[in-house]
């Protein structure tokens, strides 16, 4: 508005689109600038530190009890898998619950770009948190070795690490997709925990132990059951398995059901919905 003569059109030649990385940096900041986001990260960090302290305490107090690098990395991913998906859910649903989506999507009308920026921001945050957990895990390993006067070998192979990282990201994506589908914080968190924790631990484990059909069927609809043969070389019952075509199919169907499906449906809902 440098001229006082009335113009009836807007000259957009001098304005560039908002760069994608700037959108990511804004979404990054939105994750951390509220009490909810701050405390969620703080609690995640605190739980990692707690794992650190507990593991060392257990090792120090139990003569001859040693922990492997694999055990340590599993211990340290528990707090991450519990809380990171909530961050992924909140980055989407808080816009709707707080109705700030009206501002977000008027400053960047391409809803797809905003959603991808949110996804990028929460992915970076997840990766950083995983790195933090691994550093704390390695530190635990060194201290435990010193206590036990043993060799501090951090004998995790690249495959194991990759699976841990990939699984964390898969669950984060699952949270993100569910959030986009429901656009409501309590519903998303509830559905996420029921599907990712409650069903596999409380329901599927019992069904699998009792029924043969469940052993065949459940890996098709549950990510953890589907992925375990690839990750650990055994099924959920601890039996060694040779992964074949069926196992690959199971990974595909469970991922379609809980990750790809919700993301596709959720994104189309976000892109089409009326914001008010």
């Amino acid at each position: 508005m440098t001229t006082a003569t009335p113009v009836r059109s807007i000259d957009t030649s001098g304005t560039a689109r908002v760069p994608f990385l700037r959108l990511v940096s804004v979404e990054w900041r939105k994750m951390l600038d509220t009490r909810g986001g701050f405390w969620l990260l703080a609690v995640t960090g605190a739980l990692v530190v707690l794992c650190f302290a507990l593991t060392i305490l257990v090792v120090a107090l139990n003569d001859g009890f040693s922990v492997s690098a694999g055990m340590i990395s599993e211990i340290f991913t528990i707090p991450l898998s519990l809380l990171l998906p909530v961050l992924a859910i909140l980055i989407v649903t808080s816009e709707w619950s707080q109705r700030s989506h009206m501002v977000t999507f008027t400053l960047e009308p391409s809803r797809m770009r905003v959603m991808l920026a949110k996804l990028a921001a929460v992915t970076v945050l997840s990766l950083l948190t995983i790195v933090f957990a691994f550093v704390m895990g390695a530190l635990t390993n060194v201290i435990c070795a010193a206590i036990l006067d043993a060799n501090a070998s951090w004998n995790l192979d690249a495959g194991e690490i990759a699976w841990l990282v990939v699984l964390q990201l898969i669950y984060m994506l699952m949270g993100f997709g569910i959030a986009a589908l429901f656009l409501n914080t309590p519903a998303s968190i509830a559905v996420y925990y029921v599907a990712s924790l409650l069903l596999p631990l409380m329901v599927y484990s019992i069904l699998v132990a009792i029924f043969d059909w469940a052993r065949e069927l459940i890996p098709f609809i549950d990510i953890t059951y589907a992925v375990t043969p690839f990750q650990q070389g055994t099924d959920m019952m601890g039996q060694p398995v040779d992964t074949g075509v069926v196992d690959v199919l199971r990974v595909i169907t469970s991922m379609l059901l809980w990750v790809v499906g919700p993301i596709v449906l959720g994104f189309s809902r976000v892109l089409r919905s009326e914001l008010k």
């Binding site: 807007i10 957009t12 304005t15 560039a16 689109r17 908002v18 939105k30 509220t34 808080s94 707080q98 109705r99 700030s100 009206m102 501002v103 008027t106 400053l107 960047e108 009308p109």
Partner: peptide, 19 residues
Amino acid sequence: DLPNPGRHVGVLLDASAQH
């Protein structure tokens, strides 16, 4: 189609619709 629309159009639809 407006690039960086905030630089061209100022919008206030609901002052309470913020976090």
